[in-house]
Computed example of a mutant assay.
Amino acid sequence: MADTHSVKLTEDEIGILVDALEADMDGYVEAAKEARGNNRREDVETFTEAAQRILKLKTRLEELIEE
């Protein structure tokens, strides 16, 4: 398991991170679509995995705001 770190953030700062992650994730989703269209399976897998990992982190951060 990776090391963990604690960082104190305001809800606004978390919101900024969520927005940035969403934009980044959208880029990976689009890259996966493009790779799929060009039949580049390895790239599809890489970009899809990146998007899924970003989504997981984004969801965790959103849960902090909802509490």
Rank of each mutant, 00 (worst) to 15 (best):
D12A: 13
A20M: 03
A31H: 04
V18N: 06
G15D: 01
I65G: 06
T59M: 10
A20T: 00
M25G: 03
I54D: 03
S6H: 11
G27E: 05
R53A: 13
R36G: 00
Y28L: 04
T59W: 10
R41V: 10
Y28I: 04
G15R: 13
M1S: 15
T4Y: 09
D24H: 05
I54W: 03
R53I: 10
T46N: 07
E34H: 01
E13W: 06
V7I: 15
E22D: 08
G27H: 02
G15E: 05
N38Q: 09
K56L: 12
E67C: 02
V7S: 04
L57S: 11
G15P: 06
R53M: 13
T46G: 02
E66L: 12
G15H: 03
R60L: 15
T48Y: 04
E49N: 12
D26C: 01
A51E: 04
E42F: 01
A50E: 02
E13Q: 14
T46D: 08
E62F: 03
E22H: 04
A31L: 04
D12F: 06
L9H: 06
D12I: 13
I14M: 05
G15N: 13
E11C: 03
V44F: 04
A20W: 00
A35H: 00
R60G: 15
L21H: 02
E34A: 03
D26Y: 01
R41A: 12
V18A: 08
E45T: 05
D43K: 05
L55Q: 15
L64H: 13
G37D: 06
D19P: 00
K8D: 14
S6Q: 12
V29W: 05
A2Q: 13
V44H: 04
D43S: 09
D19Y: 01
L17Y: 07
R36K: 08
R41H: 05
K8A: 11
A31W: 10
E62D: 08
L64V: 10
E34R: 05
E66T: 15
E63A: 14
